[in-house]
Structures are given as structure tokens and as C-alpha cells.
Design a protein around this nucleic acid. Structure first.
Length: 204
DNA sequence: TATGCGATATTCT
DNA sequence: GAATATCGCATAG
């Protein structure tokens, strides 16, 4: 892997994270997700998120705290990782205070470091597609259930970093794939980014 | 470009 | 037994 940045990425402190779920979802656009993997560093610029606020019928915390969704109830800045459809993992950033179930789903990244390791096999996969969509994002970043509950603001393998390149205009839309509260515009993305997921009409 | 469907495991009813 | 915050492939327009 090529050591890319001239300057180390600064880790975000918890008190820099906005306390509201929607605010955090917006805030995270343009920020960095870093995984210091044994095989090398993987990092990417967050370009698409979705908010799942407290009391949201579409949120995993809606029916109360269970062993599987416990991480959503941690203080903001903790990772909630779960498996879906038996195949993919999804990563969220818990957004509430201790005991409040809410989070922000990370939906797409612009790969920065470790691009080769992100599963680009013999140039078949375009860089734009490596982390387009929440399932692909987790796969590219080598995120699985073992990272569930990790504090992204503490020293560890997985953490949130400050902006590397400032974000362009941020647009919003309805969320993708949800079947409840379908009208709420809780998806946020960097307008014009070619790394954003979803159908064309939800990317501009 | 848009829509439909199968694969697959865990959780909850 | 049903549902699921998905993806990739197939097919049609």
C-alpha cells in the first residue's frame, strides 16, 4: 500500500459530534472513516448517510433494547454493526446519549487509502463502486460484527477522522430501502459525487 | 434506465 | 414462519 497523505488524519473527539441524529448525519458528510487493519490502513471519505432518529419506526431501536441492537443505545460516536440478508454488514454511528436508541447509517464512501485492499480485483471493479451502498461499504472497509460496539472516538482500529477535503453542497432525499416513515427526508449526500449510491434521481 | 428476483442468516412474532 | 436500513444479475423498454 502506498502511504498517501502528507499529514496524518486527525481523529474526531466526541464533543465535536453534534448531539442530534439528523445533525450528525449531515456533519459526517465529508468526514473520514479509518480502519487500521493488520494488513494496512483502509480509509474513505463519507459521502452518503441516513439518519434513524429516536422513535423512528424504521429504526432498529424502535422495539426497544435487545442484545443485537444494544450498540445503538451507546453514547454517540460508538459503532453499531449488524448483519443483514445473511450476507452483508452495515455500519452505523450511534447518535444519542447513553440509553437513547438512534444512529446514522453510513451508506457510501469515497475510498482514500487501501484502495487495492478494498477488493479491487484485477481492475474489474471501478473505484466508484467499491463502497457504493452500505453493504459494499462494510465489505470494502473490512467491517464485521467484531467491530460492533467500538468507540470511534477512542484509540482503536476503527475511528472517525476530520475532513480531508471539504464537502461540496449537501443534498437530502428520502431514505433507500425502508418500508416505514418513507416520506421523511433523512438521507444526506454530497451532491454531484460519483461515489453516492441509489438511482440517478436520488443522486442529484 | 428501470424493474424484478434469488441468495442468505439472524431476529422477532 | 415472516421480515429484513442489500446486491448483482437478468430482462424489458
Amino acid at each position: 500500500m502506498k502511504a498517501e497523505p502528507g499529514r496524518p488524519i486527525r481523529q474526531l473527539r466526541r464533543n465535536e459530534l453534534p448531539s442530534g441524529t439528523v445533525e450528525l448525519a449531515r456533519f459526517l458528510i465529508g468526514k473520514t472513516l479509518v480502519h487500521d487493519h493488520p494488513m494496512g490502513r483502509l480509509s474513505g471519505r463519507i459521502v452518503e448517510t441516513e439518519a434513524y432518529p429516536p422513535g423512528d419506526p424504521a429504526g432498529h431501536s424502535y422495539r426497544g433494547r435487545t442484545p443485537s441492537n444494544n450498540s445503538l443505545f451507546l453514547d454517540r460516536g460508538h459503532a453499531y454493526v449488524y448483519m443483514i440478508y445473511g450476507i452483508f454488514f452495515m455500519m452505523n454511528v450511534a447518535s444519542g446519549s447513553q440509553g437513547v436508541g438512534s444512529g446514522v447509517l453510513l451508506r457510501a464512501l469515497e475510498p482514500i487509502e487501501g484502495v487495492e485492499m478494498m477488493g479491487r480485483r484485477n481492475g474489474q471493479v471501478r473505484v466508484q463502486d467499491l463502497a457504493r451502498g452500505p453493504g459494499l461499504l462494510a465489505r470494502a472497509m473490512r467491517i464485521d460484527k467484531r467491530l460492533d460496539g467500538v468507540d470511534l472516538c477512542a484509540r482503536g482500529r476503527l475511528w472517525l477522522g476530520a475532513t480531508v477535503r471539504s464537502a461540496g453542497p449537501i443534498a437530502s432525499s428520502v431514505r433507500i430501502g425502508v418500508t416505514r416513515s418513507m416520506e421523511r427526508r433523512l438521507r444526506f449526500y454530497e451532491r454531484g459525487s460519483s461515489f453516492v449510491s441509489g438511482p440517478g434521481r436520488l443522486r442529484s
